[in-house]
Simulated scan of single mutants.
Amino acid sequence: MNFEELSLLIEQQLDPSSMVARLFELNGFGGGDRSNDLMVVAGRQRYGSVLSPSLGSRLIAEGMTEEPNTLSLDIGDREAVASGLACGGSVRVMVHPWAWLPDIRPHVGARRPFALVTALDAQSRPIGIQVATIDLPGDGPGTQQAAELLARGRAGVSVLASEQLTLHIHCFIPSSRLVVIGGGVLAKALQIQGDLLGIEVTQLGQGEKPPLVGRSDGVVVLDHDHDHVTPVLHHILQDTEVSYVGSLGSRGTQEERRRRLLECNCVEHLGRVYGPAGLDIGSRSTAETSVAIIAEMISVLRGRSAASLRAVQGPING
């Protein structure tokens, strides 16, 4: 279950007695959609799934107790293949009441990435859940590691194990949005790039209010009408947690935008503006400029330097 699906579920105002099943450990299976990692059972309604719909039915049939617990199930090859998996295997699932979750509504409402950090004892029984964000990781076990995973854009489940304690880190990160202020051929090129990458692109015309943006989102200013752009840009910088703000235009245009924002007492946020927008890849065409801008946005969202992979150490993905 991704961030958006969980957001819709929270709006349902579920009964606190609803039960939650969360993916804990996988062995085998090969391919398949590993984003099916959370299921909620509310009365006769079922939301989401754990690995496959058939496994969810088995979990319900074999008992999702009201006490926090973990269940182990084997899945044969036939059942696995019917569910879109390559082969069979075994799975461990954590179950607990919905009311056992901490309050995540403020983070969902602000489109803020967050993680649920669940501690399990030596017998793999859940003993408590904490919520962590990038800026407020908390001081509990595993919360700092959760903040680091969030900063790298790592959605999904990670497990940290020791002899005394196992930590289940479940990261929820909104799908990225890009708000483009202005129009023209570059706006169209950014739309094409966004469609390719699964980024929701919204083009903002004069007088239109920007949609809600958060830590996983970006804004690109193409419009050179400072009277129109400055109040919108001031609002975005002052009142949202958006990570990437790109500003198109010459050095002179950037200086004028900076001067206007200073007049709006926005000095503490000027460092968040990337202007001129885009990575230095020698762009010559509109299409290449859109690639440079989107690539810079992704590098900022993932906390990466945008250097050549040949020149850096560590993992090459996310």
Score class of each variant (00 low, 15 high):
H96K: 12
V95M: 03
G43Q: 11
I104H: 00
L116D: 02
V117Q: 03
V41M: 07
A86P: 00
L59K: 06
A99V: 09
S52N: 04
G32E: 04
R58M: 08
R34C: 00
G56K: 03
S52G: 12
D77T: 00
D33G: 02
H107K: 04
G76A: 13
S57Y: 07
T118W: 02
P97L: 11
L38V: 04
G56M: 02
G63L: 14
A82G: 12
A82L: 15
L101M: 14
V117T: 04
L51S: 02
R44I: 06
R111V: 01
S35L: 05
L73W: 04
S72V: 09
D33F: 05
G48V: 04
R34L: 02
D121N: 15
R44Q: 15
R34V: 05
L71C: 12
A110M: 12
N36F: 13
E62L: 14
R34K: 10
M39K: 10
E66P: 04
L116N: 04
E66C: 05
P102Q: 10
L71Q: 14
G43M: 11
L59E: 03
E66V: 05
R111W: 03
D37Q: 15
D33V: 07
R112N: 09
S83P: 06
D77M: 00
A61F: 11
D37W: 09
G88C: 11
L85I: 01
W100Y: 15
S57V: 08
F114D: 03
G28H: 09
G28M: 05
L101I: 07
R105C: 03
